[in-house]
Design a protein around this nucleic acid. Structure first.
Lengths: 146, 146
DNA sequence: TCAGAACACTTGACATTATCAATTGTTTAC
DNA sequence: GTAAACAATTGATAATGTCAAGTGTTCTGA
């Protein structure tokens, strides 16, 4: 192991830069979400709901207690942005599904992330491709549970 | 302007990839913070405190109400991780400064971000440099207030 | 088979984080 | 030198987070 034996200065700088960009993108996302009457957490949940997802899986993705998810989904369901559906193969599980309205609102939130979008416009196609490939290489390692 | 006239599919994919990496890094950060008895927000504040920072500036960085910062700093101060200092040139302002203990704990949190750190190890020096340069180009545009 | 462990979700109690409206004290601008 | 603007705090309230306990369902192994 020893993933962090003696980090190069360059590596620390890169981590800091990644953090700064992550923070900036999060700000952009949160602002767009607020513009549609969603809290950051609610928007984050909607963004995860590409397909049906058990409550437990959501808790894992959000890295929070399962009981927390209950309340978040309660509020989203009260606004008709998601539905709870029983899982056909396991009666313990409830799958959360975005409604049409929920999909619509998160699509609009994504469209309104202008700071992020505008920043990406400053890269030419070749640079975009390079960036995409490097980040794609990075992704699997970062998503490993520590 | 029209930052979002007709987004290329590639651009949307790049945004999604950036979001995924930002999320993964945040998870890593939050887990390391929790390991040291800090909430994500508390760790985020400590991470910003390279030098003295007025409460108001912190609220701007966190994109939240100033009154929220009061409580967060109260709790950090109760644990001796930060100090409030009067601003010599403006008596309205209180500058927040990390204590030695505060600097120490956030340093350790950064050192324990193993998922992020490990992922960066998969890039060779040339790739790291390329990534750094591309992200550095991206950063200013993303930090613009939307 | 069937008793108990493990699991998914919920509830209740409580701390933290967030917003807003209102207050106090201090500049700044006219 | 007063009025507007500002920095920070307080108090009320909602949203998010944790943990412990409880219900119902599934899995495991003797």
């Amino acid at each position: 192991m020893s993933a962090t034996t003696s980090p190069t200065p360059a590596k620390l700088q890169l981590m800091e830069l990644l953090a700064a960009i992550g923070t900036a993108q999060w700000r952009d996302f949160a602002a767009a979400a607020a513009h549609h009457g969603l809290t950051s957490t609610q928007a984050k949940v909607l963004a995860q709901l590409n397909g049906p997802l058990p409550m437990r899986a959501l808790a894992t993705l959000l890295v929070c207690d399962a009981s927390n998810v209950t309340g978040i989904i309660d509020r989203l369901e009260a606004r008709s942005l998601v539905r709870r559906e029983p899982d056909p193969s396991d009666r313990r599980v409830k799958n959360v599904v975005a409604t049409d309205e929920g999909r619509d609102i998160i699509r609009r939130v994504r469209e309104e992330m202008q700071a992020t979008s505008g920043a990406l416009d400053t890269l030419d196609p070749a640079e975009s491709t390079t960036l995409y490939e490097l980040l794609a290489r990075l992704r699997p390692g970062m998503e490993k549970s520590a």
